[in-house]
Design a protein around this nucleic acid. Structure first.
Lengths: 336, 336
DNA sequence: ATGAAAGCGCTAACAA
DNA sequence: TTGTTAGCGCTTTCAT
């Protein structure tokens, strides 16, 4: 057994009640300066540290938030989580981040985390990646990240996907492209659908007809982007630009283009979304829509803590914007 | 206040003592089948879930491990953590992963996590990234990841860095390269030094003289790899191959080569370490040493739990190996 | 096989 | 300003 000193040891040492010690370590006002000094000396001398568990026990709060994402290795998710941690730490909270690759795992995880009251609140990254959103308990503070909630009373933080896609497509149009293909993420994810909407709106606005056959559904992987371009080529589609809904798929497109001896950007312009690390190191460097991903995590924590601490659940859906980063994978049509 | 049922509610409901309920939820043997059924029915009916905090309180264990890395976004770290989580979950443990970009943050983090007994053990990824290792308390179970411990009594899991570098360099030598440059990580990290050792041994074995001026220290970033090649070129070094100690720097080298109109692999062979995602999507696809990164995390948890649970601290330094993945950034000298 | 009592280390509510 | 008394919800020990 560990012989760590308790609050009572400190009390004994400094000749006050344990409650006064509690007051000191919690920075309460109503303690006389002398007593405070006395107690602080005893704390120092004994090397006393309050036990987080005992505290949680007494106040019924764990000061821990869970953050569940499909995985940890995707740069986007990792950045969000890192942002969330930074913010949480400021408030003396901890983030317990876990990955749930499927909804079954998600269900079990939430069951452990929330059911056993291990956390005070829940951040769910990509809640609509599958049917996992169904397994979120109603009685726990939750914030969705990466998709605005379909239900009324859940807060969310996400990218303004429609606008991002609109801006990306608009960029291609302004460069003079007329045959712009779209590669989406999985269409069960709201963000894929919203981005498809933005693409459509830009096309509409430019007076281009929307062509179903210029859209292929991918799964965010580079391979799926590669396959998508191949399928366009096999079908003999005429296209001079591709908007891939994320950078990885855009990278796949550039790879397929290289293999097919299609020059990017002169014969085919490519734009992605994310500005992931190394986007500028591909050949050619990738034009993309840069999001402030850590901020998404930070905002999520901020909102969640408002709910957790003040029970203040004014519903909010925060949408952040993205910035166009022009590199060499897009170029004015006919230019060189 | 939450009205969740406690163990006593279940006891009342099923007409037994709360202690018997405790026995049932802990799967103890000495409970009669009938009583068990009775209690289980009550648990079901009331929707009872034991409180993790109360449990921790009573047994003095949190069933939580901390995992601290320099950041979460580096793919290598993220993979290790993900591996650690998977393993931990099997043992019903949770991982509280935090990033500490500098040793001051690390110190505060450890202070919070370990000082307040929020976790049962500690996994430190890249303990020698700076002087953070100095802030690790002696009285807590620890496992180092990514570097074998310099101290005697600390367990570690890492890549067999010397061998990996030896194999990589050997690959270049066997292809006929004679002027092989080395780009290292920060030399304060053991893994950079070990990899430099392996490079040297391969050179020695081939009868090549070690040339100080063919070595440049980078910082793992693509930019530093790019700068490194530039500096070789500016100094007019003759080189036909580069061994970069990680993939990102290798990518930087390829980028610099492209900018300088040097053809990879025909004029310059490049090999990295990690096999990070998209390594195969660069131009040309990168030859690299692939490590089983999630396994490093898994092993770390396994070892840590042995220490935590069985107090069994037989010191161990586990070294894992890597596999050569030949892509198109290396080629037999003179071949095409 | 079951129960009673004590306690894990703290905070909350009230009293002095 | 300070101390006293009760818990928080569980496990552990010792009886029975």
């Amino acid at each position: 057994m560990s012989n760590r000193p308790t609050i009572r040891d400190v009390a004994r040492q400094s000749g006050v009640s344990h409650q006064t010690v509690s007051r000191v370590i919690n920075g309460k006002e109503d303690v006389s300066p002398e007593t405070r000094t006395l107690v602080e000396a005893a704390i120092e001398e004994l090397g006393y540290r309050p036990s987080a568990v005992a505290r949680s026990m007494a106040q019924g709060k764990t000061h821990t938030l869970a953050c569940i994402s499909p995985n940890l290795t995707d740069f986007t998710f990792a950045s969000m989580i890192e942002g969330a941690e930074v913010e949480a730490r400021q408030y003396k909270y901890f983030i317990l981040s876990s990955s749930a690759s499927d909804s079954q795992t998600f269900k079990e995880l939430v069951n452990e985390l929330v059911g056993h009251r291990r956390v005070d609140g829940l951040i769910v990254i990509n809640p609509y990646a599958d049917d996992r959103f169904q397994f979120i308990p109603k009685d726990v503070p939750v914030v969705f990240v990466g998709a605005s909630a379909r239900e009324e009373n859940i807060c969310s933080v996400s990218l303004d996907d429609e606008k991002v896609a609109y801006d990306a497509t608009r960029h291609l149009i302004q460069l003079g492209h007329k045959h712009i293909a779209l590669i989406t993420g999985p269409m069960e994810e709201d963000c894929s659908r919203d981005r498809a909407e933005g693409y459509r709106r830009a096309l509409d606005e430019a007076g281009f007809a929307f062509d179903e056959s210029m859209v292929v559904e991918g799964d965010w992987t580079a391979t799926s982007g590669q396959d998508a371009l191949l399928s366009f080529l096999e079908q003999g589609r005429v296209l001079d630009a591709v908007f891939a809904q994320n950078d990885r798929m855009a990278i796949g497109v550039m790879r397929a283009a290289r293999d097919a001896n299609i020059k990017v950007p002169s014969q085919l312009a490519v734009i992605g979304v994310d500005d992931m690390p190394l986007s500028s190191y591909f050949d050619p460097p990738l034009t993309t829509m840069r999001q402030d991903i850590p901020r998404i995590g930070r905002e999520a924590v901020r909102i969640l803590l408002e709910i957790v601490e003040k029970k203040q659940s004014k519903v909010c859906g925060l949408k952040l914007s993205a910035e166009l980063i022009v590199r060499q994978s897009t170029l004015k049509k006919g230019g060189e």
